[in-house]
Computed example of a mutant assay.
Amino acid sequence: MNKEYNIALIGEIDGCIETTLEVLLKRDFAINNIFPISSSECDTTSVMYSGKPVDVVELETFDWQQVDIALFLSDREIAATWIPVAKEHCVVIDISGYYLESPEVPLVQVGVNDDDIARYSDANIIAIPSPETAQLTLAIKQIHQEVGIKRVTVAGYQSASTIGKEGVSALAGETARLLNAKSIEQHKFKQQIAFNVVPQIDEFNEDGIDFSELRLAAETRRLLNDPEMVVSTTQVVVPMFYGCSQAVHVVTHYPVELEEVANALHHSDNIVLAGSVTEYANMIDDVVGNVEVHVGRLRKDTCDAAGINMWVSADNVHYGIATNAVLVMEKLAYTYL
């Protein structure tokens, strides 16, 4: 573990990259050189890391032979264009969902299926799940392992940052304009996001399902290694800057006592379980800016003896993107490289 690594981070400089740099520094990851690479036009020329400025690098001219690991914290379009180039020279960790249907690329969530990192050499790529899938699978993994799950139904409430910094800016800008009696001329989301809820993130397919919904269902089954499990979800954007909360309904293979479910959650790493059936985390005070996944309002379903309801919350950027990417990178570097 004495080796130091050369790392590239591709994404929004003033968004997920800055947060990932904070996590890297806090976890004291062994870095030799770090290369922040903007995935879009950016006026920022440097970022701070460990008290020193680090120059932002151009994606189009970057020499991938300089790095050991590249974290692609970007969208599917960037992934499709640049990962095939990068993987010839370094190991790629990708959060975009571009490799959702690629069995040769392992999908890994630390705390759920860590051992699958060993398959990284099949394609020199590791996929990590969406932030929504990450918090969901961590919350239900132990229940699935100890009891078995037939069905999961999820209503996900995404903050504006689900589409990155431009979503945060859109919510702030729309809110300011409306409070000053000005009209909104264009939308970053499918509808106005200020003072509204929008049940769509990506484009719908012919069945009326968007990619974020398809992705959560497919990734959950794959991470839990249960292709028969039924997963149904509706993803909604709400007027909040950061964080994601989910109303989760789980149907187990047989009825279980609530105490048994609570004990399973207590044995799950990185889970904070509320103290009673009436308690739940405060998104502002407890969730945003933190790395834990909070589970509250844990209760039996009054209509199904095998049903369990819970409220699952996490910071989609700090935990869902930055921390998950760094945890996978640590496991890869310290165990396999």
Rank of each mutant, 00 (worst) to 15 (best):
M48E: 06
Y49G: 00
S50R: 06
G51P: 00
G51C: 00
V54F: 00
D55K: 09
D55M: 14
V56A: 04
V56T: 00
E58A: 15
E60D: 15
E60Y: 14
E60P: 13
T61I: 11
T61N: 13
D63G: 04
D63I: 04
W64S: 07
Q65L: 10
Q65H: 10
Q65T: 13
V67I: 12
L71Y: 08
S74C: 13
S74L: 08
R76P: 03
R76C: 03
E77I: 12
T81H: 05
W82S: 15
I83D: 02
I83L: 09
V85Y: 14
V85A: 15
A86F: 09
E88I: 04
H89Y: 12
C90L: 08
V91T: 10
V92Q: 07
I93Y: 09
I93P: 00
I95G: 10
I95Q: 13
S96Y: 03
S96V: 01
S96H: 08
G97M: 05
L100A: 11
S102D: 15
E104S: 03
E104I: 07
V105P: 08
P106N: 03
L107A: 05
V108G: 13
Q109M: 08
Q109Y: 01
Q109C: 02
Q109A: 10
V110G: 13
V110H: 11
V112L: 12
V112A: 03
N113W: 04
N113G: 02
D115M: 08
Y120N: 11
Y120S: 03
Y120C: 07
D122K: 08
D122H: 03
A127D: 11
P129H: 12
P129M: 11
P131M: 12
P131V: 02
E132N: 14
E132W: 10
T133E: 00
T133V: 07
A134V: 03
L136N: 01
L136H: 03
T137L: 08
I140C: 05
I140V: 14
K141M: 12
Q142M: 13
Q142E: 07
H144A: 12
H144T: 06
Q145I: 03
E146S: 03
E146R: 00
E146I: 00
E146F: 01
V147K: 15
V147N: 07
G148W: 09
G148Q: 09
I149R: 01
R151E: 10
R151C: 07
V152G: 06
V152D: 02
V154M: 02
V154C: 06
A155I: 12
G156S: 15
Y157Q: 05
Q158T: 13
Q158G: 15
S159V: 06
A160L: 03
A160G: 09
S161I: 11
I163K: 05
G164E: 01
G164F: 06
G164K: 01
G164T: 08
G164L: 09
G164N: 01
K165M: 15
K165N: 14
E166H: 13
E166T: 11
E166C: 14
V168G: 02
S169L: 12
S169C: 10
A172Y: 05
A176Y: 11
R177K: 15
L179C: 10
N180A: 15
K182T: 10
K182L: 11
S183R: 15
